[in-house]
Amino acid sequence: MIRARENPFASHRVDALAYRFEHGGWEDLSARLHRQGYRGAIIGPYGSGKTTLLEQLAGRLRIAGRESQRIFVNAQRPRLTASQWRTVWRTAACREVVLIDGADLLPWWQWQAVRCLCVRSGGLIVAAHRSCGLPVLYRCTSSVAQLRQLLADLDVPLATDMAQLLYEEHLGDIRAVFRALYLRLAAGDFTGIAGRDAP
């Protein structure tokens, strides 16, 4: 059994993982973003890294001199609050880039209103399960190889067959795999973790 802070799958470690591209890379993405006028959708299934990619894209935009504001749409409350509407308005007015995570959850009329507001913004990039009428910027996918790379980044030497098993069990949702592994390690089950002793 390990302390919550020492669990390799603690949220602060998982959230800090760099996005691992299955195809292309940052140069391709940046070039496409520039061609599309900083408008596009990052699409993909659950747990494929859309939020991570969007987050890191915000950092890259800042380095390139483009400020942005991120808005999260939660599945429990799939609509924008007044505060979020103000953020969209202000960001668009300042010609900054609007980033929306979960745009596909918004009611149709809210999404259309956002698009109208962002016509003159510095850009509109969303992370969603579908393109929401925007050109596809990047299609996130997951694979066992990607899972193994991320596990290596976390310094967790999980056995290959165990990684495969978990990946299939959770239908390719890497976030769900990490959650399952967190709970497993928290309970003291180190099965499949090569050479790992409980601290």
Partner: peptide, 21 residues
Amino acid sequence: RFQQTAKTELGKGTSLGGVLF
């Protein structure tokens, strides 16, 4: 520290569009 827009999400909300709907 990692929820830059936490306060944005937790704001008190009104929605003119919702009223019109």
